[in-house]
Design a protein around this nucleic acid. Structure first.
Lengths: 208, 208, 208, 208
DNA sequence: AATGAATGAGAATTCATTCAT
DNA sequence: AATGAATGAATTCTCATTCAT
């Protein structure tokens, strides 16, 4: 039963340890991004973090735990981001405004967390990781769902969930597309994304 | 640079060899689907195909070549499918009809090719495979683009490409979502997809 | 006990078979020369001979047998060569003349049998092949020994053998050196060889 | 072109690692000697060194690197040996003395480094190894050449090189012969070698 | 805590050889 | 005889993880 935990082995107590873990997570993000999770090597991560492999395993019991930690770290921020974007106040704005804010917020997050985007978008490819990735997805979907509850109070729960799931899927797909696109095309794709999402939300509005 | 070729080592000449390759590709599809490309083992593929590992390597020089062959095999069919969906004739129909046909065609394809869907959706996760996956994407985008040229003749080339890229990205994302969903939710997601795509196309229509 | 025979599996009866074996041996010589015996592949040999691997094994039970056949083929010629060089008549000539004839005979042989030289010189590197190579060595040594018996009749048998062994070792080493040398240096090395061997024989003469 | 490096992966830092590398090289020498390079197995080497295969690969990236390290290790000693044999002082002695010292020095070296002799003599057999073997050859030839420069100052550079090359080739061939010979014959072959080399050097003397 | 050596199961791939057609 | 598919033991090498210092 007890599938090997993906918890950290211990929380670092000293500042030095903090910095170590910090460095390892940064390195891991970069390496996962560049090679993909499976191809990434714990040794490569340690090397990039200028830590010994032994040090790495002092804090993380295995490779998955590193990914988990990377995800956790971004999860909090992502949650905070969505919390700040989906305040009751914001949700009273016209859809175009909401979507605009979400999109620029997301874009800023992606830009500010090099590498994480790709990990997030692709991690479902490796069955071992689907679970970890799903956590994040689920949380974001839940937040969006909560937002919808405020904005579309007449919507049934299942429909709220459906719309939230679909919205997030589209958002992820289009952000990924933008991210992969050339610098020149990126704004065009973002503009399309804006239109598409706004239209989708408006249509929910009408049907609700 | 000359990355090790992903071509087959040889085409089987005897019928026996044909069947072998057949079986290997079927097995590979299943294994890639279940484990992901990186975690999949050539031995596992051979075993599932009831072939010896040596047999597998008679025809394929390496694991990537197997994926390439799997993709090639579906590529033709997928091309044929889109060709049949995007005839000039079909393209004169209302968007709702077009989208409906594309969606049910795609759904049928996915249902009829167990496992391939996931390979397709996820293969960009592993940098080694991005290239292989991109081939398929590009072809589908190109076909859609051609369809748009017929339907929206006033659209500039770059915008056609943009819209095609975005459409395909959404289509893939939403089909993936549907595929991952429970049996009960699937039709609901497909319905949303239908609406979203139709709306997107209609909006192209207006803007063009 | 019965170490797997290195005999040919069968002598080809038809002309076609003759040509096959011919082609295989030529191909094998080239491949052994280019890659070394261990690295050479029976499949590579078959391919170069434009034969199927099955055909190859129709005639030869294993890789060693191919080498053995290659060696055998040259053995006869080499024997004939030395027989013609070491006639009683020739052996009455001054050493310089004898040596000169042997050297030019050997050089011609090497030139006329591209690839064989290297196989011969190096085959002792692979313990599996030492035995096969030794046959050739032994025969040549025996012939030279016989020549010495004629020319230096007062020499004891063991000394004859010693001198023959040493002579052949030097001859092989210096021919190998010449073979590996640049076109420009080759004649210079051959000239040295001539001097050295003549000196050695003259010294035998005196000591005998 | 950049053929995979034959450098060590890392220098061991701990004493334990030192001993490991030590043991691996000793084992490799023995195994290469017994089986030949191609037939030698990294697993066999590790086993003989009582190390795990993983340990071996911690330090060496591949089999060739092991050979390279074996060669390097002896190279230094061999250089030192020849340096000590070919001092200006020694070079003033009669040729017979010089040759005698070189021969006994070489014989002692061979006796003291079981296995290395054969590796050295044969490694040119495998094309992959020619380069590695050539390094040693070149160095020895260079040293002998330098010695000749002192002893035969009137000799032109090309002739010095020629004589050095030829001398070393003979030396290697005859030492190999002695090494392969029976205990009883070895001294006889060494005596012949002594005579031959002394004669060769004397003749250089006269011609210079 | 940190370091880097140690471990060994496991993965990809090769290749001599046999077999079915 | 010829062909080329089939076989699988054997080989090289990797990498997550543990351990000794």
């Amino acid at each position: 039963m007890a599938s090997p935990s993906t918890d950290m082995r211990r929380q670092p107590r000293h500042a030095r340890g903090q910095r170590r873990v910090e460095a390892i997570l940064r390195a891991a993000t970069a390496v996962f991004d560049a090679q993909g999770f499976e191809a990434a090597t714990t040794n490569a991560i340690a090397r990039r973090a200028r830590a010994s492999i032994g040090s790495l395993y002092q804090f993380f019991p295995n490779k998955e735990a590193i990914l988990q930690a990377v995800v956790n770290r971004h999860r909090e921020e992502l949650n905070a981001l969505f919390a700040s974007l989906l305040t009751a106040d914001n949700l009273r704005q016209p859809t175009a405004v909401i979507v605009e804010r979400v999109l620029s917020g997301a874009a800023a997050f992606i830009a500010g967390h090099a590498g994480f985007g790709r990990i997030f978008w692709h991690s479902s490819a490796s069955p071992r990781l689907a679970a970890i990735a799903a956590q994040l997805d689920d949380e974001i979907v839940a937040r969006v769902e909560a937002g919808f509850a405020v904005r579309y109070p007449r919507l049934s729960r299942p429909r709220r969930r459906l719309h939230a799931t679909v919205s997030v899927a589209m958002l992820k797909a289009l952000l990924a597309l933008a991210d992969a696109a050339s610098r020149a095309n990126r704004p065009r794709i973002m503009a399309e994304t804006q239109t598409i999402l706004a239209q989708y939300l408006d249509q929910i509005d009408r049907s609700a």
